[in-house]
Nucleic acid binder design. Sequence first.
DNA 1: CGTATACTTGATCAATGTCAACAAGGGTGG
DNA 2: CCACCCTTGTTGACATTGATCAAGTATACG
Lengths: 239, 239
Amino acid sequence: MSAPVWRHVASFNATPFLRSAAEAATVPFTTQQREALASIATRVRLPSRKVIYREDSAANWIFAVAEGVVKTYRDLPSGKRSVSAFLFARDLFGLSEHGRYLNTAQAITQVTLYRLPVADLMTLLKHDGEMQLAFLVKVTYELRESQRRAILLNRRDAPGRLAMFVQRMRDHVDRSAKRVQSVPLPMSRSDIAGFLGLSLESVSRAAAELERRGLVKFEGRHLARIADPDGLAALVAAV
Amino acid sequence: MSAPVWRHVASFNATPFLRSAAEAATVPFTTQQREALASIATRVRLPSRKVIYREDSAANWIFAVAEGVVKTYRDLPSGKRSVSAFLFARDLFGLSEHGRYLNTAQAITQVTLYRLPVADLMTLLKHDGEMQLAFLVKVTYELRESQRRAILLNRRDAPGRLAMFVQRMRDHVDRSAKRVQSVPLPMSRSDIAGFLGLSLESVSRAAAELERRGLVKFEGRHLARIADPDGLAALVAAV
DNA sequence: CGTATACTTGATCAATGTCAACAAGGGTGG
DNA sequence: CCACCCTTGTTGACATTGATCAAGTATACG
């Protein structure tokens, strides 16, 4: 729970809603702000598969991912599981409404989190406009991502959706490096299916199809190697 | 451009990310804040079908709807049109990235808007933490809505999607009144199709199906009358 | 090494997209 | 006020594609 841990959330990879083109793309926290955040945060380390919070339970904390991967999902009455998001380093999660979490959060890998009491964070935000802005930026970024995903989910074809997913995961590895070809997929096929709104079998078949087309090579269950970046990009763009 | 116009955006129908259950659900602006907003806003009145801004053009303004309905959409390479959102009174729009709008906004009905220069709004937000919070709340609300929509779009069946859509439109008429049965649908079938990720024909067939089941009666092109609220709710819930 | 879990592959069926023709509605001008 | 036209919406036939049910294979973990 030392201050430096907050380097992980020091700069959000985001451009705000409200920012002119001329300004820089990110809003980093100051050292002072990081310390303030650290002072209310608890560092927690959780094993793989651990449920972090459940849907409808009291939303007392906001979480930030320091290391590892988390998924948030909702179980639907039909028994299907809709995966809302995968969270990586620097991502915030813990979205609530009326004081209750809107979905369930579960660790996919072993994770390190920072847990912030909502009440304390609120107090902090009320006193620090700049930090509030950083949060506004972050949430706005999430909103854009969510909208983008919605557009892509309008695609009906399974291979196209999976291709889109692989690209998003690649961007998460390193947004700057264009030539990343080895993409870890820590989540299960079932999770991917839940995220893409496909059946488990369709994801499997779509993966086979992408391999057949020579776009992606799936090595083992948790690694995708992009064989033809341009071809993959073309497929994703062909909305 | 007088201060009272800002009553329209005075309270966002939202619960924030960061708010405990005990607190009130909305964050209204103070009179002073409304005046500050009014001082930088321009009131504009536009006819139906008018394009408000185009995708990729310079994002110099944020807009708030005072009256009427607006849609935002993106034209995809395939020629299809993905409708991102329908905006109603009090809604904000003008989401941008790198200083460019992410989609195109067009008036569906005759509309009255408040147009805020981004630079001025930024200055205002930097000086008023409370107002910033109101914006944070609003964006967070949008994020939740977007996630909810994503879950519903995972449904594959057209009648279910359309039922969900009718309910959302009903909620927009009056969130408090449970017994609203007459729901105006100002947008075209084509717009609905673009929003739901269905073909125009499927929307038409789904509408016929809902009528056949006795759930909704479509009177003319722009009015839906909910015949069986419970049945409709059951269909929507059957995700 | 064995068992449970995760994944793949196959066959069938239901549902939506697509192409096409047709009907209805709204607005305009005579 | 009516007729016309153009846009929007409806209905039908067919093909495509993913969901589902079912069986079999690979992998991870104890």
